[in-house]
Measured scan of single mutants.
Amino acid sequence: MKATFQVPSITCNHCVDKIEKFVGEIEGVSFIDVSVEKKSVVVEFDAPATQDLIKEALLDAGQEVV
């Protein structure tokens, strides 16, 4: 499964690193693409990962998800 999250609070590479760390810890996540320019995060994943778990990880990383 693939999901795109709009994350307007992404401003720098530190944000990218933190997002990759938090989302990458979720079992089932196979790909993460964070774009500072587009302020988006694209995640490819399989169970047990879910969109809700990914959104929670983004929030835990200090990001706003819309």
Rank of each mutant, 00 (worst) to 15 (best):
Phe22Thr: 07
Gly24Pro: 00
Gly62Gln: 06
Thr50Pro: 02
Ser30Asn: 08
Gly28Pro: 01
Gln63Phe: 15
Ile26Leu: 09
Met1Tyr: 10
Val34Gly: 02
Ile19Phe: 03
Asp33Trp: 15
Val65Gln: 05
Gly24Cys: 09
Cys15Trp: 11
Val65Trp: 09
Gln63Leu: 14
Gln6Ile: 14
Ser30Pro: 01
Ser35Met: 06
Val65Leu: 07
Thr50Trp: 03
Gly28Arg: 00
Asp46Ala: 13
Thr50Arg: 04
His14Phe: 13
Phe5Cys: 04
Ser35Glu: 04
Asn13Thr: 12
Ala47Trp: 14
Ala57Trp: 04
Ser9Trp: 15
Val66Lys: 08
Met1Ser: 10
Gln6Asp: 09
Ala61Lys: 01
Ile54Arg: 01
Val42Met: 11
Glu20Asn: 15
Phe31Lys: 13
Ser9Thr: 12
Ile54Glu: 02
Met1Asn: 11
Lys18Val: 10
Asp60Leu: 15
Val16Asn: 04
Lys2Pro: 01
Phe5Arg: 00
Val29Pro: 01
Glu27Thr: 10
Phe45Trp: 13
Lys18Ser: 07
Ser40Glu: 13
Lys55Asn: 06
Glu37Leu: 10
Gly28Cys: 04
Ile10Ser: 03
Ile32Pro: 00
Val42Asp: 06
Glu25Ala: 15
Glu20Lys: 15
Asp60Pro: 03
Lys2Ile: 12
Met1Trp: 09
Pro48Trp: 04
Val65Met: 08
Thr11Ile: 11
Ala3Glu: 06
Ala3Ile: 14
Gln63Trp: 14
Glu44Gly: 12
Ile54Met: 02
Val65Asn: 05
Leu53Pro: 01
Lys55Trp: 14
Val42Pro: 01
Glu25Arg: 15
Leu59Glu: 09
Val43Asn: 01
Glu56Ala: 14
Gln51Ile: 15
Lys38Trp: 12
Ile26Asn: 03
Val36Pro: 05
Val34His: 02
Thr11His: 15
Val36Trp: 08
Glu27Tyr: 07
Met1Thr: 08
Gln6Phe: 15
Thr4His: 11
Thr11Gly: 07
Ser35Cys: 07
Ala49His: 01
Ser9Gly: 09
Cys12Gly: 14
Asn13Glu: 13
Ile10Val: 07
Ile10Tyr: 03
Leu53Val: 07
Met1Gln: 13
Val23Ile: 10
Ile54His: 00
Val66Asp: 07
Gly24Asp: 02
Glu27Met: 10
Ile10Ala: 04
Gln51Gly: 07
Asn13Ser: 13
Val34Met: 04
Asp46Gln: 13
Val66Asn: 07
Ala61Glu: 02
Glu64Lys: 11
Lys55His: 11
Phe45Arg: 00
Pro8Val: 11
Asp46Asn: 13
Ser40Trp: 12
Pro8Ser: 10
Asp17His: 11
Asp52Leu: 11
Gln63Ile: 14
Val66Gln: 09
Val7Gln: 00
Leu53Glu: 07
Val43Ala: 03
Ile10Asn: 01
Glu20Ile: 15
Asp33Gly: 10
Leu59Asn: 07
Gly24Phe: 09
Ala49Trp: 04
Pro48Val: 02
Pro8Gln: 08
Asp52Cys: 12
Met1Gly: 07
Gln6Ser: 12
Glu25Lys: 15
Gly28Asp: 02
Asp46Tyr: 13
Ser35Arg: 06
Gln51Cys: 15
Lys21Ala: 08
Phe31Trp: 13
Ala3Pro: 04
Gln51Lys: 14
Phe22Pro: 01
Lys55Arg: 14
Leu58Tyr: 00
Glu20Met: 15
Val16Glu: 03
Glu44Trp: 15
Val65Thr: 05
Val41Ile: 08
Val7Met: 06
Ala57Tyr: 04
His14Cys: 12
Val42Arg: 08
Ala47Tyr: 13
Glu64Met: 13
Ala49Glu: 01
Val34Asp: 01
Glu56Lys: 15
Thr11Phe: 15
Ser9Phe: 13
Asp17Ala: 14
Val36Arg: 04
Val41Lys: 01
Val16Trp: 08
Val16Leu: 06
Thr11Asn: 08
Asp52Gln: 13
Lys38Met: 12
Pro48Tyr: 02
Val23Ala: 03
Val65Lys: 05
Ile10Gly: 04
Glu20Phe: 15
